[in-house]
Design a protein around this nucleic acid. Structure first.
Length: 713
RNA sequence: GGGUUCGUAGCUCAGUUGGUUAGAGCGCCACAUUGACAUUGUGGAGGUCAGAGGUUCAACUCCUCUCGGACCCACCA
């Protein structure tokens, strides 16, 4: 049998087969009735709009290490997988797909689109699940849930209703971030800020019944058509006597007041600000304070509205900007235009400059939720690995503003609110918030859907409630994900988890970094430096990739990976394979699982004793590192030990003894087996496939999976 | 403007609460090897731990400053 083994480990020959046997064994699912200590990780559900990238391989590796380790420790280890419909993200992907096919998104009926995207995601989901299997994810597939599962939708609607009843969600006409290309609002977190070269234009506004004027400075001259005031700082001596005066808005002729507001910076520009409540966040606030009229001069299409006036209506905002300046110049009202670098918000997907608009949207009043989250983390209910993320987290929580959860998209959970318009019943507009449609005629459901993160934020408790595991597994043990979604997801899961269940959703947050290439560059399709995890798995095996992703990477730091590094760990897998082959060849026919009783009978040489002593030290250290989430140290420890102590030293030392029958040979055999088997166990969470393949050969008749063997002590 | 963080061998990074000759992977040099493995072994070169000051019996590790990066946030129009 031993001669059949090839000289080199051929990953592709074993991995798929082994995974199948693991899955069929049912050991991915924790025993429901066991009294064992629970250990639970909720998988961050991958987006079902494409295939897995290297970042997914990172979370699979880290979470699978944790799960396999705790499973071997005899705990009830649950890793609950899922797939994310990924609302806006998926809609963007699908829009691009339609564009390529020459179809127009906006011409397709809502229901039809929804159906199409549904099918699209379900296809992707299947591919993705296969890929997770290839990577060795030992998650419990019987519990897998899709984020649009009707039971999830129900939970999400109930949470919304509860928030509404508690006064924590409100519908507000507020200034929001509008993406003209995608025709939807975005939350503040989805807006990226970019520095752009622009101009600061100084414009003369003349004061009524006087020959005086006031000069305002703006980066968006076209919005002046919607001005309803000019604001100055109340402390500004230059303008003190102008406060309360009326200004005649050029080009428009509207009479607007000069108001005093502390939000105006005296040092910037001229110290006088034109106030356009409908198109600037600060101006909107000033307008609220001074009860100013709001005039919308830019529409959702990014073009000037009728309210902008005859020569401008219909022009794109950028075109209007040019024309407004021209017209003002013709009137001699442009004082100067100076080059000006300023920061503008842009859609995080398409990069197009955000158009601030006033629209009725649903907002979550964030303060009561952040306060609870802050308190819970400060009390140590949830710990961050590493601590630096706790600081960042606090900073986030303290500065968060109300969260717009309305999205004008198709792909998502429709907000469970119904309106009955005024003319239907002669009354003023009615609003109904509930999980089901209200009775009676004339009700129309809100067209907007939830921000995906609103439903995702409920994921830990929503899923466990569905699978019936809430009682045993909530709060979950570890939330493992990338640090880039700390504010989007982790923070909000804490907020909504605490709100809905009264308890934190997870005890530990472990955050990993971004994957970078060997030149420390972010991986992206456009740079052409992406490593396709599945391609790597085909070439070098999943174990090699997994090991390469943890080796030398401490928690929270970015992960540098190159083909060289993966190859190095493919070599390590091969080392494991060959060392095992050697041990097998020298064990004789009694290659049964390790038996420490048998070991005790042997007369050990000092080399044997040393080996066993080292083994026991390494077991302790690896265990300690795993408990402290120091995966890289655990990996390095067992790597060094196995290769350079066990293989390079002990194996070589013992070779002569194995040639001569006798007690020295038997002792060597016992130590070889003991050390190898324990090492395989320690290595298993990191490199599950090779270790299991080898173990299956070692264990002979009494076949049990290494996956569920007991963790060494 | 606010925040976080980093600067250790040629490259990418470890270095647990401060404690003997500072480590790994890859790369490099020399040698060995048909005997578990060339996806190998043995040996080796290579670091004033960014710089300055301070605390200490002792600092890569703590404190301050300087220089130089990275990232995140942000309504000076």
């Amino acid at each position: 049998m031993k001669d059949e083994l090839s000289k080199a480990y051929e990953a592709q020959k074993y991995e798929t087969e082994i995974y199948k046997r693991w899955e069929e064994s049912g050991f991915f699912a924790p025993n429901k009735d066991s009294k064992a200590k629970p250990f639970c990780v909720i998988m961050p559900p991958p987006n079902s709009n494409g295939s897995l990238h290297i970042g997914h391989a990172v979370f699979v590796t880290l979470e699978d290490i944790m799960i396999r380790y705790h499973r071997m420790k005899g705990e009830a280890a649950l890793w609950l997988p899922g797939a994310d419909h990924a609302g806006f993200e998926t809609q963007v992907v699908y829009q691009k797909k339609l564009e390529k096919e020459g179809r127009n998104w906006f011409h397709i009926p809502r229901e039809e689109l929804y159906k199409e995207i549904w099918d699209f995601t379900q296809t992707n989901k299947k591919v993705m699940e296969g890929q997770l299997r290839r990577l060795g994810a030992s998650c419990d597939w019987s519990r897998e849930i899709f984020t649009l599962d009707e039971r999830i939708v129900k939970t999400v609607n109930e949470t919304f209703k509860k928030l509404y009843d508690d006064g924590l969600v409100y519908r507000g006409e507020r200034i929001i971030n509008w993406c003209v290309k995608h025709q939807t609002t975005l939350s503040d977190l989805e807006v990226k800020h970019e520095e752009k070269d622009g101009a600061l234009t100084h414009i003369k506004y003349s004061i009524k019944n006087s020959d005086k004027f006031i000069i305002v400075a703006t980066t968006r001259p076209e919005t002046m058509l919607g001005d309803t005031a000019v604001a100055v700082n109340p402390k500004d001596k230059r303008y003190k006597n102008l406060i309360g005066e009326i200004v005649i808005l050029p080009l428009v002729g509207r009479e607007i007041p000069i108001v005093a507001d502390a939000a105006v910076e005296m040092e910037f520009g001229t110290g006088a600000v034109k106030v356009t409540p409908s198109h600037d966040p600060l101006d909107f606030e000033i307008a609220q304070r001074h009860n100013l009229e709001k005039i919308q001069v830019i529409g959702q299409d990014g073009k000037m509205t009728v309210a902008a006036g005859a020569p401008y209506a219909g022009l794109k905002a950028e075109e209007a900007r040019v024309k407004v300046v021209e017209d003002l110049r013709a009137l001699g009202l442009i004082v100067k235009e100076e080059p000006h670098k300023h920061v503008v918000g842009a859609c995080y997907k398409c990069g197009r400059v955000i158009e601030p608009l006033v629209l009725p949207q649903w907002f979550i009043k964030v303060k009561p939720l952040t306060e609870k989250a802050l308190k819970a983390v400060k009390a140590g209910k949830t710990k961050f690995v590493t601590e630096k993320f706790e600081k960042i987290f606090f900073h986030w929580l303290k500065n968060l503003r109300d969260w717009n959860i309305s999205r004008q998209i198709v792909w998502g959970i429709r907000i469970p609110v119904w309106y009955r318009s005024a003319d239907a019943h002669g009354k003023s507009e009615e609003i109904y918030v509930g999980t089901e449609a209200p009775k009676g005629d004339g009700w129309e459901q809100e067209k907007d859907v939830f921000d995906t993160w609103f439903s995702s934020s409920q994921w830990p408790f929503a899923t466990l409630q569905i699978t019936g595991d809430f009682k045993k597994f909530y709060p979950t043990s570890v939330m493992e994900t990338g640090y880039d979604i700390l504010p989007f997801w982790v923070m909000r899961m804490l907020m909504l988890g605490l709100y809905a269940t009264g308890r934190v959703p997870f005890q530990t947050v472990y955050l990993h970094g971004l994957v970078r290439d060997k030149d420390r560059q972010k991986m992206s399709k456009s740079k052409g430096n992406v490593i396709d995890p599945l391609g790597v798995v085909d070439m070098y095996g999943a174990d090699a990739l997994r090991m390469a992703l943890v080796f030398g990477v401490s928690a929270g730091n970015d992960i540098v990976i190159s083909e060289d590094k993966i190859r190095a760990h493919r070599n390590f897998a091969n080392k494991i394979w060959n060392a095992s082959r050697f041990v097998l060849m020298n064990l004789g026919d009694d290659s049964k699982p390790t038996d420490s009783a048998e070991l005790k009978k042997q007369k050990l040489t000092s080399a044997d004793a040393h080996m066993l002593k080292r083994l026991s030290e390494v077991v302790k250290r690896v265990t300690k590192f795993l408990d402290k989430f120091e995966f890289h140290l655990a990996a390095e420890e067992i790597y060094q030990f196995f290769w350079h102590e066990f293989c390079d030293k002990y194996l070589e030392e013992v070779k002569p003894r194995l040639q001569i029958e006798g007690e020295e040979k038997r002792a060597a055999q016992a130590v070889l087996r003991e050390t190898l088997v324990s090492s395989l166990k320690l290595l298993h969470p990191f490199m599950p496939f090779v270790t299991e393949s080898v173990y299956q050969m070692l264990s002979g008749k009494e076949k049990q999976f290494l996956m569920i063997e007991e963790w060494p002590k």
